[in-house]
Amino acid sequence: MRIAVEDLSVTLAGRTVVAGVHLVAEEGEIAGLVGPNGSGKSSLLRTVYRHLRPSAGRILLAGRELEGIPPAESARHVAALPQERGGDFELTVREVVAMGRTPYKRAFAADDAEDHRIVADALVRVGMAEAAGRRFAQLSGGERQRVLLARALAQQPDVLVLDEPTNHLDVRHQVELLALLREQRRTTLVALHDLNAAASVCDRLHVLHRGALVASGAPRDVLTADLLAEVFGVRAAVVEHPLTGDPLIAFDHRTPASSAGAPAGAPALDGAARAQTVS
C-alpha cells in the first residue's frame, strides 16, 4: 500500500516543527527518515499514525486521505512502533502482543484460534516466543522493544511506521530486526539515527533538517560527504561496504563538528541539493 505525505506542516505549542514536507513510500518499499535531533522526524511520523493532526497538508493512504478514514479502519492498515513506549503494562508478553488484534475484533470479543496463531507467529519473528508468559514489566528495554514490534506485526498492517526501532537493542538484535524489515516487504516508514543502518535497510531516504525536507532519493545518492557536513555537521567519507556493497559512512571522530564544514545548526540545503529530491 502506497503512502504519500503532501505539503505537510505540523505546529506544536505555536512553533512549526514540520514545514511543507512532501515524501512517499511506495508499496513494499522501506523509506527512511534521517536527520539531526529536532529535525521533525518523530512529529511527522506521529501524524501518519494519527497521534498528531497536521496543521496543513495531507496524508494519502493508497490514494485515500487518511483524515477521512475511520480510526478503526486505518488501524487495520497502519501499525506503529512509537518512541513513547507507555507505562509498565501489568500484562504478559502474549497479552501485549494480542492487543495488536484489537482492530479486527468486536468489543469484548475473545481471541480465537486465528488470533492465537498470529500472535504466536509474531513472537517467533522477533525472537520472544519463549517469553510469552512473562510479565511485560519485567523485561529489559530491548526485550520490550521486540515485544512491541511483535504487537505491530500482529496487527497485520499494510504500512509499518517505526520511530527509532533499534533503540535499546544490542548489535545482534539490531541486525535481526533490520533483516526482518527487509523480509517483510511491507510499506514502511522508519526513522533511524544510525545512518549506516539506514543505508543498509532503506530503499529510499528522506533527509529532514529544521523541519524541512532537504533531500530524497536512494541512499547512495543522498548520503554524500557534503550533505553529512552541512546537515549533520560531521566530517565523513562514504565508501562501499566490503560485505554488502551498500554505502558505508566512515566518520572522522577526531575532528570537531565546528571544523567539519557547516555546523550542525546550519540552514537547510540550497536548491542544488533539493534537486536530488524525487517523488
Rank of each mutant, 00 (worst) to 15 (best):
V119R: 02
A179L: 14
V126Q: 01
I118C: 01
P165R: 04
D170P: 07
L162F: 06
V175R: 12
L139M: 09
A150G: 10
G142T: 08
P165G: 09
G142P: 02
L162T: 04
A154S: 09
F136E: 00
V161Y: 00
S140C: 07
E143Y: 01
L123S: 02
L160N: 06
D121T: 04
M128K: 05
R172Q: 09
Q156G: 01
L139K: 04
L149V: 06
A120G: 08
V147A: 05
V159A: 07
L160P: 06
R125N: 11
A110Q: 12
L153G: 03
A137F: 13
V159L: 08
G142R: 11
D112T: 11
A179G: 14
Q174V: 05
E176I: 06
G133H: 08
L148Y: 00
L178V: 14
Q174G: 07
N167I: 09
E143Q: 15
F136V: 05
A132R: 14
P157A: 08
R117Q: 13
H116A: 13
E143S: 01
S140K: 11
L178K: 05
G142Q: 10
A132Q: 14
V171L: 15
D121A: 13
G141R: 09
A113T: 10
L160G: 06
L149D: 00
F136M: 03
A150H: 03
A132D: 13
V159I: 14
V119N: 06
Q155I: 02
R146E: 10
A113I: 09
R172W: 04
L153H: 02
Q155Y: 03
E130W: 11
A122N: 03
G141L: 12
V126R: 00
M128H: 05
A150L: 07
L123I: 08
L162P: 00
R182P: 09
V147F: 03
A154N: 04
G142N: 04
A131T: 03
A131H: 11
Q155V: 00
